[in-house]
Amino acid sequence: MQSFEYANPATVQEAVGLLSAKWGEADVLAGGTDLISLMKDHLHTPKRVVNIKNIKELEGIQKTAAGIRIGALVTMDELAKNADVKASAKSLSDAAAAIPSPQIRHMGTVGGDLCQRPRCWYYRQGFGLLAMKDGKSLVPDGANQYHAIFGSGPAYFVSASSLGPALIALGAKIKLVSAKGPREVAAASFFVSPANETSREIALHPDEILTEILIPPATVKSATYEVRQKEALDWPLATASVTLTMRGNTVASAKVVLGHVAAKPWDSAEAAKAITGKAITADTAEAAGKAAVASASPLSQNAYKVTLARVAVKRALLEAAKQKA
């Protein structure tokens, strides 16, 4: 790691004052599970590391009339175990619980999950976020078995966030604070597919801190289904998170969001449309799965992920249908 100044603010106000208007100058440290590796590999060489773990206002989960508020410092472990989250946002609870390493669940925070950098091995080996060489991405003809099957570049990495798909499907809002004040963005607009090497894969600005998440109150069924090869620490190959508002036995409205298949969580309006107005059966779930991947464009090695995404959508829908609303 390159030497840095370590700052330990006690308030959000103080923390944002330590950030910079430019990426690369300062980094925010929470759980450390990603940032410390990024710094070891010199992918991040901040001049200042702003540890936000002593900021009390970033902690805790509260249920209010406005919904469930989840502080950025809530760990995956706390999130997975929280009764309110389990009761009204099961897809989120399950997504956190599915991380197969207790140590990562103990350390990793909600904010960190959303702000972590891609695991793309080209990025991690220093070829840049878009892995460009001579104006062309290395990914489509390279080792792309774990890469994107949606979107047509230039970013081919997959969003690594475990919580992103569930948060988007649940219609969550994310609060970002800078010295100029707070702003709220929909989870759906928080993730972006970067168009060039200098942009980021999230809507956070370099002088902002992600402070909390708000999940709106709603009576919904929700589920997250992950296809993960190992049952020990491993990344999912594809996930699907669904939120359903039911009218009797039929789906009144639906959100279907896929994870680990594109540079951002992939909101599939096609799948939602396919299931809306229908009762969830093996056939309708299968049809929604097919609709979800109709526009997939796999790379040379990852056609199998199209199948996984389709199956994940189907199984997430069937899983959600089993729940009491």
């Binding site: 030497s3 840095f4 100044e5 370590y6 700052a7 330990n8 603010p9 006690a10 106000q13 103080e14 004052g17 330590l18 950030l19 910079s20 001049k47 200042r48 010295a179």
Partner: peptide, 13 residues
């Protein structure tokens, strides 16, 4: 521009 007076800092070094 930005460093608040009360920030608890250490390093570099």
């Amino acid at each position: 521009i930005a460093s608040p007076a009360a920030a608890t800092v250490a390093g570099p070094g």
